[in-house]
């Protein structure tokens, strides 16, 4: 059995106030795939992600992680398997120091204190944040916070990484650094993002979500060539595929 497979079957989610966020969504993501879920604001991306480790309960349909259906009894195991990176690192970092924050997950997993030290050090080194271990999270810059947030997830040794807008709010250098880091991970990766250039670079497959339904599920390059589809879903081509704005302004004759 592989833990690295995510299967969503006929997922439906209706919020208590009656808002239908997801109408009917099905897909299967296999071992080692890097998949982007893109769509306009309010398309249901974040709602979908929150189902993948049981933060939200589906109104209908099933979610399988590996061969395990997501249910109350399997939740602890699934939460270890699926590491979730939140959009706002401030929501994710809540302990007094970086070390405490990264140790939070492994301590909950029941690791002994001797193992914690190594686990935390390894996770922080992997994201290049070893020197921040004794700092309070609210004193870090945006890029540092994001990297520490990733370390908090990696410290739990997940098989699947689920990331909500990983590059949002980062400066170009920090964004590039983060993308290189993510490229090096061999986990199954699922992103949501409006950073379509990052999607183009990191994800082989893209799913377009529009008003709670899947509009397309295909290789990323193929999707970004379909301008009609993109504009119907309130999206556009990544900037790197749009050509140079200066050159376009140059008269052709």
């Amino acid at each position: 059995m592989s833990h690295h497979i995510v299967e969503v079957k006929n997922l439906r989610h209706v919020y208590p106030d009656g808002t239908i966020a997801i109408i009917d969504v099905s897909f299967r993501i296999t071992h080692g795939e890097s998949v982007a879920i893109i769509g306009a604001n309010g398309a249901g991306k974040s709602t979908l992600l929150q189902h993948l480790n049981g933060c939200l309960e589906p109104t209908g349909g099933d979610i399988l992680i590996g061969d395990t259906p997501l249910s109350k009894s399997t939740l602890p195991d699934i939460r270890r398997t699926v590491g979730m990176l939140f959009q706002n690192p401030d929501d994710q970092l809540f302990m007094p120091t970086v070390f405490d924050d990264v140790a939070f997950g492994p301590l909950n997993l029941g690791l002994t204190v001797e193992h914690i030290e190594k686990r935390v050090a390894d996770a922080l080194d992997l994201v290049g944040a070893g020197h921040l271990r004794d700092k309070p999270p609210y004193h870090l810059s945006g890029g540092e916070k994001k990297r520490v947030a990733i370390a908090t997830v990696l410290a739990m040794s997940p098989d699947i990484l689920v990331m909500d807008e990983p590059t949002s709010g980062l400066d170009p250098f920090a964004r590039r650094q983060l993308m290189n880091l993510l490229r090096g991970f061999h986990h199954t990766k699922i992103f949501t993002s409006h950073d379509l250039d990052m999607v183009l670079e990191l994800c082989g497959r893209t799913i377009i979500l529009h008003e709670g339904l899947i509009m397309a599920d295909a290789p990323t390059a193929e999707i970004f060539r379909n301008e009609e589809l993109l504009s119907a879903c309130r999206l556009e081509k990544p900037l790197s595929m749009q050509g140079c704005p200066l050159c376009r302004q140059t008269p052709s004759t």
Binding site: R79, M84, F86, N88, G105, N108, E117, M156
Partner: peptide
């Protein structure tokens, strides 16, 4: 809402109503 998001983040990292300390 913010407290709920933080709680969700805690649940996502295996929080089951118990705080552990790494200091022996």
């Amino acid at each position: 809402q913010r407290a709920e998001r933080i709680h969700t983040a805690m649940l996502a990292r295996g929080f089951v109503g118990e705080f552990h300390s790494h200091r022996q």
